[in-house]
């Protein structure tokens, strides 16, 4: 009975995992395909990686995407953290419920609407003040900040609520003025949430196609825009190579994060042992 159930579970998990990972494995294999036609196997080769590395378009897109993601993540983290602090630490101010609702609205707003409305905004601003004179890096970054900051705010808000106010009250009690409490106690305690909020905003920006397509201008292609425009002309082996590079980067990042978490866990265990010896 028990044996058959565990076999059932094994089969189910294998099927599930296969569904997730076989597409990616296929992608990686096909990126090493010599043939110009993706579905036709032409033998192993790194030919498309060479094409990829020599393509200026791709590198421009990668660099634009990373720049946007970095600036976006940084601003979204600052603004999102400030809004979270307002929500959690400033008590009941007038309009708090409305503010809270509008803060998380971008999470549920369809991307098409966000993109379209921002495009309308940029165009009318251009007509009214002449800024932004052209769409590209600045407009995409602003658009990304508007929705990423909602994700950061939610992450930081959860952490702030979980932290409680004891430590901040203790600092104030010991004579620290509000700004000192923020820099010496609140922000250091928030570091994990700030880091994950920043990474989340970074990833969301790298990943975004829809909003960026709306607010971009001539010549400003982010990586997703580039990949999508090329894929429209049919599957291409150099895009497979690019995708493989992205998978590799993500895998390395995840492995690093796991290593850091493992180290932290070991340190916590050591601390606990030290603490236990204290009472005897």
């Amino acid at each position: 009975m028990h044996g058959s159930r565990s076999r059932f579970l094994t089969i189910m998990i294998s099927l599930g995992m296969a569904f997730f990972y076989i597409p990616m494995i296929l992608l990686v294999i096909y990126s090493f395909n010599y043939s110009k036609l993706v579905p036709v196997w032409g033998g192993w080769s790194t030919r498309w990686y060479k094409v990829l590395f020599e393509s200026a378009d791709v590198w421009n897109a990668v660099s634009l995407s990373l720049k946007i993601a970095f600036v976006n993540a940084t601003f979204a983290t600052i603004l999102g953290t400030l809004s979270a602090l307002a929500m959690v630490r400033f008590g009941r101010f007038k309009g708090r419920t409305l503010f809270g609702g509008m803060l998380v609205a971008p999470l549920v707003m369809p991307e098409i609407i966000t993109g379209l409305s921002l495009l309308v905004l940029f165009i009318s601003m251009q007509q009214l003040f002449g800024w932004p004179s052209e769409r590209g890096f600045t407009t995409i970054t602003i658009a990304h900040i508007t929705f990423s900051l909602a994700y950061v705010a939610v992450t930081v808000q959860a952490r702030l609520t979980g932290m409680g106010e004891d430590l901040e009250e203790a600092a104030a009690d010991l004579g620290a003025k509000p700004f000192k409490v923020l820099t010496a106690i609140t922000l250091p305690r928030l570091t994990p949430a700030l880091a994950s909020g920043w990474l989340l905003a970074f990833t969301l920006s790298l990943d975004d196609l829809v909003i960026a397509s709306f607010v971009t201008g001539p010549g400003a292609n982010t990586l997703p825009i580039l990949i999508f425009s090329r894929i429209r002309l049919g599957l291409r082996p150099d895009i497979n190579a690019l995708a493989t590079m992205i998978i590799l980067t993500v895998a390395v990042c995840v492995a690093l994060a796991a290593l850091i978490m493992y180290r932290q866990h070991k340190r916590d265990l050591l601390d606990q042992q030290m603490a236990k010896r204290g009472d005897s």
Binding site: D166, L167, A170, K177, I185, P188, R189
Partner: peptide, 20 residues
């Protein structure tokens, strides 16, 4: 008078020690 200007100090039930 705000907490940071009072001549009082408090010991918290949770101790509220700064973990960092």
């Amino acid at each position: 008078v705000p907490a940071y200007e009072r001549p009082t100090n408090m010991m918290f039930q949770s101790y509220a020690l700064f973990p960092h």
